[in-house]
Nucleic acid binder design. Structure first.
Lengths: 165, 165
DNA sequence: CTTGGAGTGTCAACAAGGCTGACGTACTGT
DNA sequence: ACAGTACGTCAGCCTTGTTGACACTCCAAG
């Protein structure tokens, strides 16, 4: 791509280039959510259910407050989603051991199965995109995304990563 | 960066790495929309208005059908948004010259002003992210995003780019 | 041991922004 | 003349977000 003019090469950023980036982000995000959305549409679920399932799977035993913090929605909004998932037997809510006010959330076997279906679909696309673009592009992709998050989001993301590792 | 093991280096993609990419995409998209969302919230507008304004500004004189195709929503949904924008004097709708069934959409002066405010906010963040990540990362970022779009989306994006150039 | 505050659940009401279905009007191209 | 296209609109529904209010449980500090 002609970045042969030194390591700290000049970064000309015309409004036109930035707008292309903005539009690429918009269209790519639509693609990114399209596959799980199609699966969810066949059930009575939406993207909000997917997010809840994803992060409960990510950090099993997480509390409601923690989830609220990650997702950035109101508890009423989350609770509506959570209730249907519990009723449908995808999520279990256990009273906390140390602090009995807290609820620790877990996916049931059925919940794990749905999570797998959804994230498989998403990973297929992500994997294909990574493969097409190549490893260096992937590293750059990740760096730009990290830089684009809000600071608090990056913190939450890091927290998740540490706990998961 | 350790990409010194050849051009077509192996691309190990563990599920863990892919999940990190998925979460990064989620958090980054939230950051990406946060700034314009804050501005829109002060008026009676939402993200849907932003999208309409953006693409009308992008391709002035575009038709309703064209916009529907780009945005991927129903005409009822778009029309609700478009109507308020026209009523508020941000968008003008002119009967087509060659084909009088068509409506050509344009931003008014006021509409251009709002578009500038919104995209300025978005560009500031994008520019900062690009600067933090560096030019090579930006190229990679764009490559992965392109690969992540649906094929039709890529087509639309290209069409827009060609027309704009 | 009481009491403030945190964590949680829930009711009610509302808004944005998607959707489907149906219908009407104006216009084009065959 | 007529079928089909482009557009607008009415009505109704869903998901997912919001605010506000209230109740309950429980931990911790005074």
């Amino acid at each position: 791509m002609g970045d042969s003019y030194g390591g700290e090469s000049l970064l000309f950023l015309t409004d036109e280039q930035l707008r292309q980036g903005i539009e690429a982000m918009y269209f790519a995000y639509r693609g990114f959510t399209a596959d799980p959305d199609r699966i969810l549409a066949t059930m009575a679920y939406g993207r909000a259910h997917h997010r809840a399932i994803h992060f409960i799977n990510r950090a099993p035993g997480t509390t409601v407050t923690n989830l609220l913090d990650i997702l950035g929605v109101t508890k009423q909004s989350l609770n509506r989603v959570l209730r249907t998932l519990i009723e449908d037997g995808l999520v279990e809510s256990h009273v906390g051991k140390t602090d009995k006010r807290e609820r620790n959330l877990f996916l049931t076997e059925e919940g794990v199965a749905l999570e797998a279906r959804l994230s498989d679909a998403q990973r297929v696309r992500m994997r294909a995109a990574y493969r097409d673009a190549g490893p260096e592009a992937v590293a750059g992709f990740r760096r730009v995304l990290e830089a684009m998050m809000d600071t608090e989001m990056r913190r939450k993301n890091d927290t998740l990563r540490d706990r998961g590792a």
